[in-house]
Simulated scan of single mutants.
Amino acid sequence: MISTLPSIDEMYQALLDKNSHYEGVFIAGVKTTGIFCRPTCSARKPKYENVEFFRSTKDALSNGYRACKVCRPMKSYHSAPDWLVPLLKEVESYPTKKWKDYELSQLGYSPSRVRRYFKKTHGITFQAYLRMSRINEAFLKIKEGQTVTQSAFEQGYDSLSGFSDTFKNMTGFSPGTQGQIITINRIPTPLGPMMIGVTDEGLCLLEFTDRKMLETQIEVLKKRMQSEMITGKHPMIDNTAKQLQEYFEGKRKSFDIPLAVPGTDFQQKAWNALMKIPYGTTRSYKQQADVVGDVKAVRAVARANGENKISIIIPCHRIIGSDGSIVGYGGGIHRKQWLLKHEFENQ
């Protein structure tokens, strides 16, 4: 919870009262439906235990919620500007559509103007909002498909591999033969929520939920591992969350979590080279290429780093430019700067 927010009791009462004085103060996330609302929403009010509160729409999106279609919290309180209303209606009608800048231009919108409005009003760009909404929609669908699997656990199964027939009915193949299950969830960190995915063999996904290309990474992972995903609990998720907490507290400098990361031989070499970079130090792409065994493969190494699906634990944030500059990072340059500073100060 954000310390600057009013008390939970006060915010819940404001939600019940549809109190307009709290507009802009908090956003309410409804756990049972996966949507977030403004304080004055006219929809049926959730139970106290089914609500969590956020400071902004950005925080609600980052934690897996989708915008309510009743109160439309992605509009500013006094309604969006007239020029933007038709676009917002289009986005609400087609929540999974990937809007490109040229498509906005064809509809008569200035992509930069749309970007500035979202950045000023919600703290994120238009494209970041679309990306997070699609991820949250996909996460919800996976979660809704958990019902059959969860019933299998309740009937006494203690392992994901123990309900082959049930899983086959849900996905079309049996775990352990043509595919397996990836259990996913979200874990909080000081730098924002991360999506985590594990199998019984190891960690296969750990990315910030607002990372660019996360959708593509998930699809590639599912295809390479011949897997389907469910949301749920898993001991390896708990262990990873614990070790990450220790890392962020400056108490851990290395991880002992088994990894199950599919990739080409070259990608595996590149990722192994990343794992050899000591805590609190950095390497250039050229130095990493040298460790891989081909000093000329700088661009190939950079591509492999970009395809790394295990943030922090496979530390691609420790790669910098040859001139010492802080270059690209899938989780965002601001996070890379934070991680490097954190490690330097806690060596």
Rank of each mutant, 00 (worst) to 15 (best):
I184H: 04
G192I: 02
K58A: 09
K18H: 15
Y329F: 10
N136G: 15
F167E: 14
S56V: 02
A300N: 10
G197Y: 02
F248E: 02
R134S: 07
A289K: 04
M170G: 01
M1E: 09
S174V: 09
G293M: 09
T264R: 01
D256G: 08
W271Y: 06
H21S: 15
T57N: 14
I187E: 00
Y48C: 00
T183Q: 13
P193N: 06
S325T: 03
T199S: 15
G145N: 15
T4A: 01
E92T: 11
S42Q: 08
N136V: 08
R283G: 05
L104S: 03
P175C: 09
S322W: 00
V292C: 08
L5Q: 10
Y157E: 12
F153L: 14
S161K: 10
F126M: 05
E249G: 03
P86A: 05
K58C: 03
K31D: 06
R303V: 12
G192H: 11
K212P: 01
R303H: 07
R115K: 12
S164L: 05
S151C: 07
L140K: 15
A300F: 04
G24L: 12
A260G: 05
K143L: 07
K212M: 01
L87V: 04
T264L: 03
K69Q: 07
T189K: 12
I230H: 15
I218Q: 01
E10K: 15
R186S: 05
P262E: 03
S151T: 07
L84S: 10
M225Q: 14
V301Y: 05
Q268F: 08
R283D: 05
G280M: 13
R252I: 00
L107G: 01
N136W: 11
A14D: 10
V25E: 07
T171F: 15
P190S: 05
Q245S: 07
K251S: 05
L87K: 04
Q106N: 12
F53S: 08
Q268D: 03
T216Q: 14
V295S: 13
T125N: 03
I196K: 14
S164W: 02
L274W: 08
R115H: 11
Q287R: 10
K58I: 00
H21R: 13
Y109D: 08
N63K: 01
C316E: 13
L274G: 08
F126N: 12
S112K: 11
G202N: 11
A152T: 05
L214W: 04
I142P: 00
N185Y: 01
T183N: 06
H334N: 10
Q155F: 14
L339V: 15
V261H: 03
